[in-house]
C-alpha cells in the first residue's frame, strides 16, 4: 500500500495506482478528456491536472499519468488547479466549440467566456481514437502524422487503410465529434443555453416553447399540435 495525503486526508491505495485512479477511488471527481479506463493513459489534454507538493513548492501534474507515491501531498481542488483548469477549458472552447463534451465541461466548470481567437477545429488531438484502434480493436489503422501545428490524425498515405474494419470505435470514443445541442444560441462559442432556459416542460406554458421541436417530453410541436410519432 502507498500512503499519501489527498486534499488533507491520509489515504492509502494499492501500488500502481495513478493519482487519477486514487482520486476516483476516494470519490473525488476530476474532469478528463483524453482518459478512458480501458485504454492506456496518454496525458494529452491536461484537464485532469492536480497540484502535487507542499504550498510554495508545488507543481501541476496530469493525474492520469502520475503514479501515486509514498508521502505525496496532493490537492485536486486548490485555487491554482481550478484556475488552470478553467483556462484549459476556455482554450478548448476556442479550438472546438462544436463539441458537446467540451460545452458540457464549460457549463459544469462555469466557463462563461472565451478570450481567445475563435477556431472551429474538429479534432483536439487527444489520441483516444488512435488508442482505441490500437489497443482495443488491434487494428492500428490510424495514427498521428506530421508534427507541430500540422499534426493531425490520418491513415497511412492518406488512403483507406487495409487494417480498418470499419468498426466505428474511433467515432464512438471521440469527445469532439458529438455535436453540441443546436439550441437557441447555436452560433456563440459558449453554449450554456440550457442554463439560461427554464426546463422544457413547464407547468405554465404561456408564450414559451421548448426549443426542441417537437418536444421529446410532451410531443407537441411549436404550433401546439400533438406530433404523429
Amino acid at each position: 500500500m502507498i500512503n499519501f495525503t489527498l486534499n488533507g486526508l491520509d489515504v492509502a491505495v494499492e501500488k500502481g495506482f495513478t493519482l487519477l485512479e486514487a482520486a476516483k477511488f476516494y470519490g473525488i471527481e476530476l474532469p478528463t478528456l483524453c482518459y478512458n479506463e480501458a485504454l492506456s493513459p496518454y496525458g494529452a489534454c491536461r484537464l485532469c491536472l492536480v497540484e502535487v507538493g507542499i504550498p510554495g513548492r508545488s507543481r501541476l501534474v496530469s493525474s492520469c499519468t502520475y503514479p501515486a507515491g509514498e508521502g505525496l501531498y496532493v490537492r485536486t481542488h486548490s485555487n491554482r488547479v481550478i484556475e488552470t483548469r478553467k483556462l484549459l477549458i476556455e482554450m478548448y472552447l476556442a479550438t472546438c466549440p462544436g463539441s458537446k463534451t467540451i460545452q458540457d465541461l464549460a457549463s459544469k466548470y462555469h466557463v462563461t467566456r472565451v478570450r481567445f481567437k475563435q477556431k472551429h477545429e474538429e479534432c483536439i488531438l487527444c489520441g483516444l481514437c488512435i488508442r482505441m484502434c490500437r489497443e482495443q480493436m488491434q487494428a492500428k489503422a490510424i495514427g498521428f502524422v506530421e508534427r507541430g501545428g500540422f499534426r493531425r490524425i490520418s491513415t497511412p498515405f492518406e488512403k483507406k487503410s487495409e487494417e480498418c474494419r470499419l468498426c466505428g470505435g474511433c467515432m464512438y470514443i471521440c469527445p469532439a465529434c458529438q455535436a453540441r445541442c443546436q439550441g437557441p444560441q447555436e452560433k456563440s462559442a459558449v453554449c450554456n443555453a440550457c442554463l439560461n432556459l427554464s426546463p422544457p416542460c413547464l407547468e405554465r406554458f404561456d408564450e414559451m416553447m421548448c426549443y426542441m421541436d417537437p418536444c421529446v417530453a410532451c410531443e407537441q410541436n411549436s404550433r401546439g399540435e400533438k406530433s404523429e410519432r
Binding site: 495514427g143 506530421e146 508534427r147 491513415t155 497511412p156 498515405f157
Partner: peptide
C-alpha cells in the same frame, strides 16, 4: 512495425 507507425515517423 505497423504501417501507420512507419508513416508517422516518415512524416514527422
Amino acid at each position: 512495425f505497423s504501417l501507420i507507425d512507419v508513416y508517422s515517423v516518415a512524416t514527422f
